[in-house]
Design a binder for these strands. Structure first.
Lengths: 345, 345
DNA sequence: TTGAAAGCGTTACCAT
DNA sequence: ATGGTAACGCTTTCAA
């Protein structure tokens, strides 16, 4: 580490005063401790001259606060999480906090390692988009007193705040819209990390199909590292069941892989197949035709998550009841879901 | 901070041995210090039982190493940087390092703040994609002994390692290719943070145009926060100079804004206008037609940057001469640059 | 083969 | 209004 040569005691020596006084001044307690303005000025001047920079590590050891927040998401390179990360970092920085991040890759072993890392690093709190199999570990963490904000997944009886998106409703409304438009054979390519019957997006889809008297066609895909594998699987699905008139994708990367598969097969959107994807993406806006998307409110998710955490970190009010915020999705309609009456010829 | 209740001295007390011994054992010095296997086993067992987790803050204070690396990029939510961040984090984690990141937004004031943050946090080293106006501050940092790896921009006489991409050559080759294909009126929409005559991509473009006896048309745009502003500016350019047959974009987000502008104006790619963008992107691969791109080797950039830094952090060999790695770009040809002979009718 | 104690830079309690 | 000093949890030198 490039240790700044000058410490608080160097300044103290040079000015012939105590480190205590300097610490008070540097921490804005000069008034409270009734330190003379003259001395304050003298200290501040010296501090600037010497280019003194406080050592957060020492401070952290003494105070038990590192001003670091841990952020754990599925994949920091996914635009959805990257945008959230950026917003959270901005807000955190504005409040004097730094962010250390990690990508779980939906691997619970990795995730556990990171949880340990957060503890040994001494983060003040963390924001976690949990993967399957993390419930117990997160519970332990919370019981140790760590402030945790959960993204997108809640656990029963855990005293952590939660920021959710109403996935079920978002999906339900989307299917309803498609049905109104006249689509009937609607497939759902879903990312299923959990059991399908526990995945909200799948539940919403099935419910809507059922309520409309239609048959549900869910294709739950497990997590894949290589996107080319998704392309292949989706191509297979399209080849084996050629009579779908609409296809839903459960995440932005499934949607992207889907577009690639559809393009490769030479299918026209929306004439041959209507398309909607969860999570909006630059690509969906600019693609021709535009791809309708179920957009998550990234701004609000980030804002709520970091606000909730900072709030808790600020007032160490452990009594306060946990928040559980559920945000609505927005169905953005674009060309990919416009009903085109097929010419039967 | 959720402080883990159990410290090294708790274990020591319970086992009736000294903290020294435990420290040795935990740091793999048991053999070296010839501590009995029996004791080692006893300690390890206890440590596991008690769920002891070392406190990196205390460790950091004592050793002067935090095992934290600072990562500073223009915008962590840009897929280009997000991918780099992910790769770097992976590799760092594998070597016991954590990453704290920040987005400069091309704002040198923000950037300076972050540099200070890195110091007060005590990061062991950092990877920086510098913005204009940071040269002096980075130089100070390096002189204080911080290990710094620069991404994509070098400074004269600075003892920092540099990982560059050969922007000039990438651009030159692209223009050359377009000319060979028969394009003549080639415009370049460039992001110009520095003076245009110092931007490698602009230099490469101009040189190639000149070498082919063509007139250069550079439109240097300053950094904008809102992408809609780019769309507007690019639309204006397209409206005012309607005889371009090809358009180059200096970054992926300029390219995306460009596609939006082109789409809005109803121009056909590549019939009315060929398009190439710097930085590949999912969108460019999947768009119809595919958009040719000058791809930066993200994998190699990340790998080289983190390897270089870890190397330096490992062997504190300050004597070692600085590395300056320059990586080649790849021109990925897609439909957007296929020459279509226009029907004059 | 193991332990005592100093010290990393800061804060905060208790003095004065 | 200001200062002395213990303490935070760990590593490391020196001693035994």
């Amino acid at each position: 580490m490039a240790r700044s040569k000058v410490s608080i005691s160097d300044i103290a020596k040079q000015l012939n005063i105590s480190t205590t006084t300097i610490s008070f001044i540097l921490n804005g307690k000069a008034k409270e401790k009734r330190i003379s303005d003259k001395l304050v000025a003298r200290v501040l001047k010296k501090v600037k001259e010497e280019g003194y920079i406080p050592n957060m590590v020492a401070k952290g050891l003494r105070t038990g606060k590192t001003n670091i927040i841990g952020l754990m998401v599925e994949d920091i390179s996914n635009p959805f999480f990257a945008s959230i990360a950026k917003k959270i970092e901005e807000k955190a920085h504005h409040n004097g906090y730094k962010i250390v991040y990690c990508s779980t890759e939906n691997d619970s072993e990795r995730a556990k390692e990171f949880l340990t890392m957060f503890q040994t690093l001494g983060v003040d709190g963390c924001i976690i988009a949990p993967t399957m199999g993390m419930e117990e570990d997160i519970r332990d963490l919370v019981e140790k007193g760590m402030d945790v904000v959960l993204l997108d997944r809640k656990f029963r009886n855990m005293s952590a705040d939660v920021v959710m998106v109403n996935n079920e409703e978002g999906m339900y409304n989307t299917v309803t819209h498609l049905v109104k438009e006249g689509f009937k054979k609607i497939a759902f390519i879903a990312l299923a990390l959990d059991k399908p019957e526990k995945e909200d997006r799948i539940i919403g889809y099935k419910e809507a199909m059922e309520d409309n008297g239609l048959e549900a066609h869910v294709f739950p895909l497990p997590f894949r590292v290589e996107h080319s594998e998704y392309v292949k699987e989706i191509s297979d699905i399209l080849n084996n069941y050629q009579d779908f008139d609409a296809m839903l994708f459960g995440t932005n990367y499934l949607g992207i892989s889907g577009l690639e598969a559809i393009g490769n097969l030479g299918l026209r959107i929306p004439e041959d197949l209507a398309v909607v994807s969860f999570d909006d993406h630059d690509l969906f806006r600019i693609y021709k035709p535009g791809i309708s998307a179920i957009a998550q409110p990234i701004e609000e998710i980030s804002q709520t998550a970091i606000d909730t955490l900072l709030d808790r970190l600020g007032h160490n009010d452990k009594q306060k009841v946990n928040r559980m915020v559920s945000l609505a999705t927005t169905l953005i309609l674009r060309g990919s879901t416009e009903r085109v009456v097929k010419d039967k010829s």
